[in-house]
């Protein structure tokens, strides 16, 4: 194995290992960030100007709840 071979091996293996460890560490350490995510969603809603192709589960459930309340 030449010096160049060792260099490429260490850079390649080391680079991807560091990336992997950093990502997994961040995923595990930020696992309780749901409140921040909700806040972000409220601040920057997606406005694509179109209706959804099919009513989402949440929309359907809300509609259903409203219908049952009206009936009651």
């Amino acid at each position: 194995m030449t010096f160049g071979g060792w260099f490429i091996l260490i850079i390649s293996v080391g680079g991807f290992l560091i990336l992997f460890i950093a990502c997994i560490y961040k995923v595990l350490s930020l696992s309780g960030a749901s409140k921040r995510i909700e806040g972000f969603e409220k601040m920057t809603p997606i406005d694509n100007g179109t209706e959804p192709l099919e009513p989402s589960y949440a929309t359907r459930k809300n509609k259903q709840t409203r219908t049952s309340r009206t009936s009651a």
Partner: peptide, 25 residues
């Protein structure tokens, strides 16, 4: 939309690369 995806995608891709280059290589 409460779930994160940018870091998740990078983490799963990097796990694959770590297995490929670090073990397979």
């Amino acid at each position: 939309h409460k779930d994160e995806i940018v870091l998740g995608a990078l983490a799963s891709a990097s796990a694959n690369e770590a297995a490929e280059v670090g073990l397979g290589g």
